[in-house]
Amino acid sequence: MNPILKVSKLCKSYTQGDKEVRVLTQINLEVSRGERIAILGQSGCGKSTLLSLLGGLDNPDSGTIEVDGVELAKMSEDERSKNRSQKLGIIFQQYHLMRNLTALENVGLPLEILNTANHERQAGEALSQVGLSHRSSHFPSEMSGGECQRVAIARALVTQPSLILADEPSGNLDQKTGEEVMNLLFHLCSQHNLTLLLVTHNRELAHRCDRILELTEGGLHEQSK
């Protein structure tokens, strides 16, 4: 079976003043459909850079990224946007919900971008899957952090993407709420056979995934569970 995500020899560096900082060097990665991968690493090791490259939000210096058999580098920016809306679901540590939209509207937003008919019904279903049907008309400012992150999860899942990129989804939450949110995320990924790439500091959480990769010195190293 073809991998859902294939990364080959990915390199990315930044310039800071006169100095060039090599963040990612020769990253190789293959993720199969339905697989759950955890990426561990210290602050500043390049986890966020890797996620933004995988999400097509930034361009690599060299190397290739294939999502569902399609190479990102060969796409225009607009095609990458379309690819993102169809095949990727992104969950941020800081939720990044639209403040002026209700929970239901936030969840339905990716469907609206895709011009999907019945987007409200589908958004309502996704919201009920994360247990927030009763909060559908509330704005983010009227919800707790845990609820906001559940809305963000529903938003990432509503288009039934091939790959979920999750950046520390529980990083902004207290332990109990964080556990609840992560349970929900793992449950939904299993239920819908979704592929998950989870960036986290939490080793315990990482052990719930199928594979653990550690990002150190610009390279990905497989860890035994």
Binding site: D78, S81, R84
Partner: peptide, 16 residues
């Protein structure tokens, strides 16, 4: 702007 960045991350193009 941060919300617009979110919109782009959700798949909306810049021109949209």
């Amino acid at each position: 702007l941060p919300e617009l960045a979110t919109l782009i991350s959700l798949g909306a193009t810049r021109s949209t």
